[in-house]
Design a protein around this nucleic acid. Structure first.
Lengths: 374, 374
DNA sequence: GTATGTTGTGAATCATGGG
DNA sequence: CCCCATGATTCACAACATA
């Protein structure tokens, strides 16, 4: 029970203690999670089974039912069993997740509604549901339904108020400067990426690395600890290593563990420069407007106006603005003049430089570069 | 209670009896369904409240306020209350559905997992989940999540063994002779189709007719009876009439009933030319540069240069470029380096392949061929 | 009339840190 | 817990206005 394999394991600090990371735990997922301390991982990616291996088939292929139990009884029993299993691992997942951590689960219509309800009941707060639109799905051979061409992911924070990680600018950069949407077009895992043993696929549901790449890039930071309780062939670990995230994989079947170990050992970490992503302005150091006045970048008495020259204001010595009787911060005066609930003064106000209007945000960037607080 | 409006109602045979069709029942949906006999409708399309649980006001970057769905009919105190409501209407829906009938429900991540679990528990058998990918969704104004760009539909038969209607060839014809997939790209309801009263939208959540058109064409036969227990402004009725299906709408609010009546009376049966217009216009495949990075076609850290090797840049993990202190999209960095107002990064940037420079546009073409965005 | 620019809006669980 | 100041943030269309 609970065999910890001796991979090049490291330790990551979690509060006062440290947990071993970058390793595979060969065990049942609930048992393995029980051995982990509270609030020790930043993100969990879970690709749970669609049917339980324990108590017979949950989701039968069309016409596959053979036993004589009445429909109602059978159905209630099997859904209930799946729900129990789901609630059990979700509860453990929530316990070991840090307060501001998030959970990803992937599934299909067979199980995703059970999982979604269960995680809401456990207290998780859904942030998005994401549709993985498969570029090359398997056709519906019988022509009896719509081609099942997508899978669903749920992204949820530990609770309603938590302050989760979302690398907005990185996602925007990845999507040609447009906001990343909730529908992702990605090919299924095939070609050389698909792991094989003696010519047959090593795992029936290996996920493409591109999917995990986007997930990790969007919702974790370098150095974060990512847990995958249904590790399989270790896609999560391979991508985490490449992106400089720590990972823990839990997998019950030793043949998958072996495949995953070999795979991850062969994956190469990216170097620092390549891993860098577009930073959000929210994470940049703050510059007080007054600092621009103090440093001489903007003189007291200078005239500011908005991009269309509808309003003007005068810079005062203490870094406040005056526009008529209205005085206050660059944000407050901008908001008041427009009658808007709020205003980002940095992008609203401009100053004339060489005949053209320049947003004072540009002066702020210059200031940041000169006073080099990177 | 339960006022039946005297529209040009007809009667449809249901076994030995006949029920009044092509009419709106102004009543609570559960009460109205209770008054209908067992197994009397062929299909049910339901657009129940989503239980959005919105916080305070949300303002757009330019200062406008988002007109949110804050109506009483969308407010439930707890998930348990929403579940009770859901199970109640689903149970009645299943009773009045013919044995080979099917149910459609539309929802978002706020409610669809509750609905999906509940209908499985009630005995419905899920045939597909369908993703409506909105061509023009509302952005995420605060940059806090992925743009919520889709809604989910569930299509289910009354039970596991039922012989439901699926017009496979009609769907294939509608999709340029390719199998219709489980993800549908359709614009949201706007323009002249969006019903207004004194210039403001008549209903906050009016669905596009194209959505109902595809649903009715796929899963009903001419002459079938379609029930919509949350009728709203009557999109289901209008499309059913155009396609020669009978319909029954249930709607509690008389202002919506009035709008729907007028609308359906004005709707015309469909002629052939209109059908060809509805046929899918394939969306242009658009490849983000980031997709090449994600897919591994170009590794983070790769060096790009222009055709004459005057400038170089490094590819970062999120698909942005870095050249010295300059960072941004392939287009922006290309433009900045050249001092040009704009630049097509696809043709400007090159990568070395077998000793020769290849424009990254070539990689894009390869990507399209391999992943054939259909 | 044509081209261009401005404004409005859609089922939305939409901020963060310091005092 | 609340309150306040700072300041980050939008895509595709349709409708209408201006040139």
């Amino acid at each position: 029970m609970g065999v910890v394999l001796p991979v090049k394991t490291r330790r990551a600090r979690v509060g006062s203690q440290a947990i071993a990371v970058d390793r595979i735990i060969r065990d049942d997922c609930v048992a393995a999670m029980r051995a982990l301390p509270d609030a020790c991982v930043d993100m969990i990616f879970a690709d749970p089974p669609y049917n339980l291996q324990l108590g017979g088939d949950l989701f039968r292929p069309e016409g596959g039912r053979v036993d004589a139990v009445t429909d109602d009884w059978d159905r209630f029993d099997t859904f209930a069993a799946y729900d129990r299993f789901t609630r059990e691992w979700l509860a453990e997942a929530r316990r070991i997740l840090k307060p501001d951590g998030t959970l990803w689960v992937i599934g299909s219509y067979h199980n995703i509604f059970r999982v979604g309800s269960a995680l809401q009941d456990e207290g998780f707060w859904i942030l998005n549901d994401i549709v993985w639109r498969k570029a090359n799905p398997m056709p519906n051979f019988k022509g009896t339904r719509f081609t099942n061409a997508h899978e669903t992911l749920i992204w949820a924070s530990r609770g309603e108020g938590s302050r989760y990680t979302f690398n907005y600018q990185a996602m925007k950069a990845l999507n040609d400067e447009l906001q990343m949407r909730s529908d992702w077009v990605l090919p299924i895992c095939g070609g050389p990426e698909r792991l094989k043993i003696n010519g047959t696929k090593a795992h029936p549901t290996q996920k493409p690395e591109a999917l995990l790449y986007r997930i990790l890039l969007a919702t974790t930071k370098p150095g974060d600890v990512v847990l995958d309780p249904f590790f399989g062939t270790g896609t999560t670990g391979a991508v985490a290593r490449r992106l400089g995230r720590h990972w823990i994989g839990i997998e019950r079947e030793s043949k998958y563990v072996a495949v995953a170990e070999e795979r991850i050992a062969a994956s190469l970490p990216l170097d620092e420069s390549a891993m860098t992503v577009m930073a959000s302005k929210r994470t940049q150091p703050r510059v007080a407007f007054g600092a621009l006045v103090e440093s001489g970048a903007l003189a007291p008495g200078a005239i500011l106006c908005d991009a269309r020259r509808r309003w003007t204001a005068i810079v005062r010595a203490d870094g406040s603005l005056a526009a008529g009787t209205e005085t206050g911060s660059i944000h407050k005066v901008g908001a008041t003049l427009q009658g808007a609930p709020s205003c980002n003064g940095w992008t609203f106000w401009h100053v004339e430089r060489a005949g053209a209007l320049v947003a004072i945000d540009v002066l702020r960037q210059d200031y940041l570069l000169q006073h080099g607080d990177g």
